[in-house]
Design a protein around this nucleic acid. Structure first.
Length: 685
DNA sequence: GCAAGGTC
């Protein structure tokens, strides 16, 4: 027997724990241990209909509106191996075998405030039926120091049902699972309205994304430019002097009528410039990048979230970049010190002047105590050349250069500039703030484009300025870029960092895509438009749902609210949204229209009908890539066996079959049933 | 065919 079987969240974390404790198995702090690694959630919920009593199965299989909403009290929340992960079975087996020899299990998954780490741990413990002691290792980051500290102060968890972290994550997962009813409802409602869609997906993250983009596109579409005219002054270097006015007074300086503006301009003469205040200022380097910011910074270069995600993952596996799925925008002191020795090597590779990197001490602005993985940054292994990164994907070089420069910038000195406040001698209410660069320092390495302290090319101020009539306008809503969207989701706390990026990638590809990227900005597909029109005024499409969920999760974690209550709140949302979805679907004829809906309009499946086994039946003319002729249809209806040349993707195959009653996903239908396939049949004839 | 949360 060993003392502790340690559950690591993933192999990379397992390795780090091993380096802190002295190997994947051994002795630490007087206890024998063995480390095994999960791969995130290797356990997931069963299908809805597999969680309910026999008499409820059909109802929970159905997507029809008459079978919604579900009675969530009927669900036993059974779990199974994660189907998407081929390794899930063998990982669980390893845990099961090792647990037989262990006196206790230590949950050493990521220490995430949402409790996801505890959920991953308990899922495994429950799946293998382990009933002895369970302990938790709480660590701030994956550094050796923090890990050793955590394993010297393990916390006993006497009762799973009293583990607040677990309870809140468990309740969250059930809430989200229940929300899939709104996908079923939206799909059925849209189909009932006559649109032949495969699926209209809704959830508290994707519905909000689609809704927000839709509203922005509407705002752009309905934007009306309202020009205004206002007297300003300009010097020969382009520095502009203008007046400040609040809403009540703005009418006195700003005119919608150009003539009034021109008249006002007559009241002003050229004036001398008066310097009021000069101050040397500095600005510290920009924040480090997390995965969502990295992806959104690379989007204008034409790289999709999907491309960045998969390329980064491969680079991470090769250890050229740090752990991908982080929300951290800072690093810990340990993480900073780890990279310090290879900084010059990285600088050389990405062509950054070594002489700029004089700030080798950690900056308070970029160092934090709690950064589980730390911001995305170069890995401890430095690639031999930028070209050698091409094997990972077309965005690999761009990813590395951006990460490296962003990180190197924190080792350069602050940007220095002269901030000058000036006014006009004759008209003191006209003001200008002019920033004149002194030393660019970190900005020579990396800037993030949202910069207002560097007002180049204004490097000088003239002695005098002249009045001119400025034409401005109400500002146009910005294009829905990835950066814009991520900022919105972050601000409203919708979705976790890694899920935001992966969900965005997911809903931007495939035949059910809701979004398309067009020159760095998002547009909605027909499916996306339908999704947004359907979730108008629903709760699932609003940011408040996540806000409330987060608050409730906190309460569940502190035992101020029961899991049942939290799950009940999902039922409330669904009951609220169902009638709205149905109402919105009925309005689609007006809101979505039929003219531009060619893609989503039903393609009526052509059918043959006739007598078959003394019954009047129908079956599809088209079977996969094959179309039955009228003569063949007659023979099938007569019950005859038919031999067809099936045009498969890799060439033609001979198949024989008959008409038969069949079942697909619980739905009964008549169709061609293959009785024999002749392999090595005709090729490309 | 469905969620969001982990992960490869």
């Amino acid at each position: 027997m060993i003392d502790y079987l340690i559950i690591a969240e993933k192999p990379s974390a397992g390795k780090k724990i091993a380096s802190a404790l002295g190997g994947m198995a051994g002795n630490f702090d007087g206890h024998s241990y063995k480390i095994l690694c999960s791969q995130g959630h290797i356990i997931e919920f069963k299908e809805p209909h597999e969680m309910v009593p026999v008499n409820q199965i059909e109802k929970f299989k159905s997507w029809s509106l008459e079978n919604l909403p579900w009675d969530s009290s009927q669900m036993n929340w059974g779990r199974r191996l994660n189907k998407a992960n081929k390794n899930a079975g063998s990982i669980i087996k390893q845990f099961k075998t090792a647990a037989k020899e262990a006196n206790a299990i230590v949950i050493a998954t990521d220490n995430d405030p949402s409790g996801e780490g505890e959920l991953i741990g308990w899922e495994i413990i429950n799946a293998i039926g382990f009933e002895r002691r369970v302990l938790r290792a709480f660590f701030e980051d994956e550094s050796i120091k923090s890990l050793q500290k955590a394993f010297k102060s393990l916390v006993e968890i006497p009762d799973q049902t009293k583990d607040g972290h677990y309870l809140k994550a468990d309740a969250r997962s059930k809430w989200d699972f229940l929300s899939m009813q709104l996908t079923r409802a939206s799909t059925s409602a849209v189909r009932n309205a006559g649109y032949n869609v495969k699926v209209i997906r809704q959830g508290r993250l994707k519905s909000v994304i689609v809704r927000h983009i839709f509203e922005q596109l509407e705002a752009i579409k309905h934007y009306k430019r309202l020009p205004y005219y206002e007297v300003k002054f300009k010097d020969q270097f382009g520095n502009t002097f203008s007046r400040k006015a609040n809403n009540d007074q703005i009418g006195q300086i700003r005119f919608s009528d150009k003539l009034q503006g021109t008249n006002d301009l007559q009241n002003y003469q050229p004036s001398d410039i008066k310097i009021m205040e000069q101050q040397k200022k500095t600005q510290s380097p920009v924040k480090l990048l997390d995965l969502a910011s990295l992806a959104s910074n690379l989007a204008p270069a034409g790289f999709s979230a999907d491309e960045v995600l998969s390329t980064y993952q491969k680079m991470y596996e090769a250890e050229y970049v740090s752990y991908p799925r982080t929300e951290d925008k800072k690093v810990t002191l340990e993480q900073f010190n780890d990279l310090l020795p290879i900084i010059d090597q990285i600088a050389m590779l990405v062509n950054v002047e070594g002489s700029l990197l004089t700030h080798r001490a950690p900056r308070k602005t970029h160092i934090t105590k709690d950064a589980a993985h730390g911001a995305n940054r170069p890995g401890l292994k430095v690639p031999s050349s930028l070209n050698s990164l091409d094997q990972f994907g077309k965005s690999a070089q761009s990813i590395y250069v951006m990460l490296a420069k962003n990180y190197l910038a924190i080792l350069a000195e602050d940007y220095e500039y002269q901030s000058v406040k000036a006014s006009l001698a004759t008209y003191p209410s006209f003001l200008a703030t002019i920033n004149i660069p002194i030393k660019r320092n970190y900005k020579a390495i990396f800037t993030d484009g949202n910069d207002d302290t560097e007002t180049l090319p204004t490097a000088k101020i003239a002695k005098s300025a002249e009045p001119f009539l400025f034409e401005g306008a109400n500002s146009k809503p910005t294009k829905p870029t990835m950066k814009w969207l991520i900022k919105f989701l972050e601000k409203n706390n919708v979705g976790q960092g890694s899920t935001r990026t992966s969900t965005l990638a997911e809903i931007t590809k495939g035949e059910n895509a809701m979004l398309v990227e067009k020159r760095g900005a998002y547009d909605l597909t027909e499916i996306g438009k339908l999704t947004a029109l359907i979730n108008k005024e629903t709760w699932i499409g609003a940011v408040d749902v996540t806000k409330t969920l987060n608050t409730s999760m906190e309460n569940v974690g502190q035992f101020k609210m029961s899991s049942k209550q939290l799950i009940g709140s999902a039922d409330t949302v669904i009951n609220h949204d169902l009638p709205i979805i149905i109402k919105n679907a009925r309005a689609l004829g007006t809101t979505f229209g039929t003219a531009k809906a060619s893609l989503a309009m039903p393609k009526a499946k052509e059918k043959y009908s006739g007598q078959f086994n003394q019954q009047k039946i129908e079956f599809a003319k088209q079977w996969g890539r094959y179309t039955f002729s009228e003569d063949e249809a007659k023979r099938l209806l007569a019950g005859q066996e038919l031999v067809i040349k099936y045009p498969g993707k890799k060439g033609t195959r001979m198949m024989s079959g008959k008409l038969a009653k069949q079942r697909y996903k619980g739905r009964k239908f008549y169709g061609f049933l293959v009785t024999e396939t002749k392999n090595g049949g005709l090729k490309n004839d």
